[in-house]
Computed example of a mutant assay.
Amino acid sequence: MSSFDRIVGDIAGALLLGTIAVSSADSSPAKGRGDTPKPTRTYLPVEDLPSRAPPMAPEERAKVMQELTALRERQKMLAAPNGN
């Protein structure tokens, strides 16, 4: 065993014993956990739902349905093998 290995081993042992002595002197590791702040909520609570949008007027719904039907027909024409 080289002198470097012996020194490193002695330092590691001293650090380990010092850590044990400090942590067991007057408190346990579990005792210190109560001092940490509680995390804030980062998610939407279940009880706070967003408000619902009012329903569409019948005229607006008819216009949207007409536009969707026109788009579907256009997609059918473009997807046809000969463009027909």
Rank of each mutant, 00 (worst) to 15 (best):
Q66F: 08
G32E: 08
E59L: 05
E47D: 06
R33T: 10
P37M: 01
I20Y: 01
M1F: 02
S24E: 06
A79S: 15
K76V: 03
G83R: 10
P37Q: 07
T42E: 08
S28G: 13
G18N: 02
S51N: 09
G13Q: 13
G9R: 11
G32Q: 14
R61L: 03
A30D: 10
T42Y: 12
L17E: 14
S27L: 11
K38G: 02
N84S: 15
L44Y: 03
K31W: 03
S3N: 08
S2L: 11
A80G: 05
R52Y: 03
K63C: 01
V46D: 10
T40R: 10
G34T: 05
R72G: 09
D10N: 09
Y43F: 12
A30Y: 12
S27R: 13
T42V: 14
G13A: 14
I7D: 15
N82V: 13
L44T: 01
R74Y: 10
A12N: 14
V22A: 05
L78N: 10
D26E: 12
K63W: 04
R52L: 10
R41V: 12
S2V: 07
R61V: 00
V8K: 01
M77V: 12
D5M: 11
A62M: 04
S27W: 07
I11T: 13
E59V: 04
S23C: 09
P55N: 12
P58Y: 00
L78C: 05
E47W: 12
I7V: 11
R72E: 09
P81L: 14
F4H: 10
K76T: 09
A53V: 02
F4Y: 05
G13W: 07
T40G: 08
M65Y: 01
A14C: 02
T19W: 06
S3D: 07
I7N: 07
Q66D: 11
A14N: 08
A62G: 02
P55V: 04
P37D: 09
S3G: 01
L16Q: 07
P50W: 00
A21E: 03
N82L: 15
A14L: 08
P29G: 04
P55C: 10
S23T: 13
P58C: 03
D26Y: 11
Y43S: 13
P58K: 01
S51W: 00
A21P: 01
T40N: 12
L15Q: 06
L71M: 13
R74F: 05
Y43P: 00
L68H: 02
T19N: 15
L78Y: 13
A53W: 05
V64T: 06
D10H: 08
D48V: 06
Y43N: 13
S2R: 06
S51G: 03
A80H: 15
P37L: 00
D48L: 08
L49Y: 00
F4P: 00
M65K: 05
K76Q: 14
R72Y: 04
T19F: 08
A30Q: 14
V64S: 04
M77A: 15
K38D: 01
T42R: 12
L17F: 04
T69Q: 12
M1V: 05
P55K: 06
L15P: 00
T36Y: 14
K31I: 07
G18M: 03
E59T: 04
P29K: 03
K31M: 10
E59G: 05
L71H: 14
